[in-house]
């Protein structure tokens, strides 16, 4: 999905008592979005339904994060990530996303369920910095090696701290 929106520096901040909920099919096409999603993304329900979830992808996000996200959830596990999202009007909003697979009664994955909460401001600051470095690394490495390069950077950071990705992310 091509984004023709020019990002601005306007930030929308989530409220403690809300969360954004969305669901997708196996390919990441949106099948449901709650009213908070509609409010923050700035798109109507009709615009959202059937669209790729990357409609709200912000160019500041490194690709490796989404690779990790898809690897994790398609493996049947939950994925937690801080994500900077792009609204239709070019503004951005940070979320703490928890994405889990949806299972049918036979245990097969039928789609994905995402709950995005108001993130801890400290985490946003830290992860913003981490993503900036990862993005730089991706640009330096070139398209083909981008994900490998920034993943390595993230793994180095984690091994320095002696934490797994989940431990690190959930420690804020």
């Amino acid at each position: 999905m091509k984004n023709r929106i020019t990002p601005t520096s306007v930030e929308k901040v989530m409220r403690e008592e809300d969360f954004i909920v969305s669901m997708t099919d196996l390919q990441g096409r949106i099948t449901y979005g709650n009213r908070i999603f509609i409010e923050f993304s700035g798109y109507s329900e009709q615009e959202l339904l059937g669209t790729q979830h990357n409609i709200i992808r912000h160019p500041d996000m490194p690709r490796a994060v989404f690779k990790l996200l898809w690897d994790t959830i398609s493996g049947g596990s939950e994925c937690n990530a801080y994500v900077k999202n792009l609204a239709k009007d070019g503004s951005f909003y940070w979320v703490f996303a928890n994405i889990t697979p949806l299972f049918d009664p036979n245990g097969a994955i039928t789609g994905y369920f995402s709950v995005r909460r108001k993130p801890d401001p400290k985490a946003v600051q830290t992860m913003g910095e981490v993503y900036r470095l990862m993005l730089e690394e991706e640009q330096r490495a070139g398209a083909r090696d981008a994900i490998a390069a920034s993943t390595r950077l993230m793994l180095n950071l984690l091994s320095e701290k002696g934490l797994s990705y989940d431990e690190f992310i959930l420690a804020f």
Partner: peptide, 22 residues
Amino acid sequence: ETTFRCNLDGKFYRHTMPVGLH
């Protein structure tokens, strides 16, 4: 469910996230 499963797997750092719930 997730936190129970994580707890059983020994991932004690995974607490519930009550933000946004009423």
